[in-house]
Design a protein around this nucleic acid. Structure first.
Length: 290
DNA sequence: TGCAGTGTTGCTTC
DNA sequence: CGAAGCAACACTGC
């Protein structure tokens, strides 16, 4: 699930926990996670590199390393990063009474790539479905990979005019277009549904058909919903956890996503309905959204 | 028991 | 060419 708010949460945690550390070892039981360079070289190149910065672009996490190299991480469906003492990642050391331990949860068994650091800690990629991808690349390659992404919706530079410009000429339902990373970067299925609910706009509505007032409401709620989700450290409907293994708080305040059949939270008397748009399940209130 | 559904994206197919 | 479908993988719930 890691969408913009989840990756932002990971980024902020990592900034506090890993900057200045040096990678001393790399291990993986699923080398396919590494896209480039080939795994053996990836491991070899990483050892000895110092972590200098942590960034986010759309749903990508970027870890800046010495010698102008970058570790690019995309979490896809179930990936997330865990920081723990190296000893905590082995079952022998599992303390079941420790709620904050990543091992208090079903996280450890899905760790497929581990970066051992020079302070006895590990940064570990936990990823049940093994879709996550990482790459170790230079600046030019990084820029090439990120080149097609649309604007960052939480940046002040993402103005209403820019939003309109990005939507201009886009075909199909608004829900589908909100998910397109080259139009606006970072929105996924959960937040697209929540944004459209707050805006009172049905997900099937065609972009060219939306009125000024509706466009404005969507624009404002992109910022509002994403900011709220960042504040609450993301959504954990399933496997997502922060770097300490804790769940995000947005799942508790979400209004429609995966609430099919429940009464509308606005109390309008309608029920939350589910439909499929562009192959993705979409949740909305037939009463409040028009 | 079995199969549809799950947060993403990029490749294949039509 | 664009759009739709599916594959990558593992698990949950009906």
């Amino acid at each position: 699930m890691p969408e913009l708010p989840e990756v932002e949460t990971i980024k902020r945690d990592l900034e506090k926990k890993i900057i200045g550390r040096t990678v001393v070892d790399v291990k993986s039981d699923w080398p396919k996670t590494v896209k480039e360079p080939e795994y053996e070289l990836f491991e070899k190149l990483l050892v000895g590199k110092k972590i200098t910065s942590v960034w986010r672009r759309a749903k990508n996490l970027i870890i800046g390393l010495s010698e102008d190299t970058f570790l690019l991480v995309h979490f896809k469906m179930t990936g997330h990063m865990i920081i723990a003492k190296a000893s905590k990642l082995h079952k022998d050391h599992w303390d079941e009474s420790d709620e904050a331990s990543p091992l208090a949860d079903r996280v450890n068994q899905f760790i497929h790539l581990s970066f051992y650091l020079d302070n006895g800690q590990v940064m570990a990629l936990s990823d049940m479905r093994k879709f996550a991808k990482v790459a170790l690349i230079g600046k030019e390659r990084l820029e090439e990979i990120l080149a097609d992404l649309g604007p960052e919706p939480l940046e002040p530079s993402f103005t209403y005019d820019l939003f309109l410009e990005r939507l201009n000429g886009k075909k199909g339902p608004i829900k589908k277009v909100l998910l397109e990373q080259d139009v606006i970067a970072g929105i996924g299925n959960i937040y697209a549904d929540e944004i459209l609910f707050e805006a009172g706009v049905l997900p099937v509505r065609l972009v060219y058909d939306l009125k000024d007032k509706e466009l404005k409401a969507i624009y404002e709620n992109i910022k509002k919903v994403l900011n709220k989700a960042v504040e609450l450290r993301g959504t954990s409907t399933s496997d997502y956890r922060d770097t300490s293994g804790k769940k995000g708080g947005f799942a508790d305040v979400r209004k429609v996503y995966r609430k099919t059949g429940e009464p509308c939270p606005q109390g309008c008397g309608g029920l939350v309905t589910r439909t499929k748009i562009a192959g993705r399940s979409s949740h909305y209130c037939q009463n409040c959204q028009t």
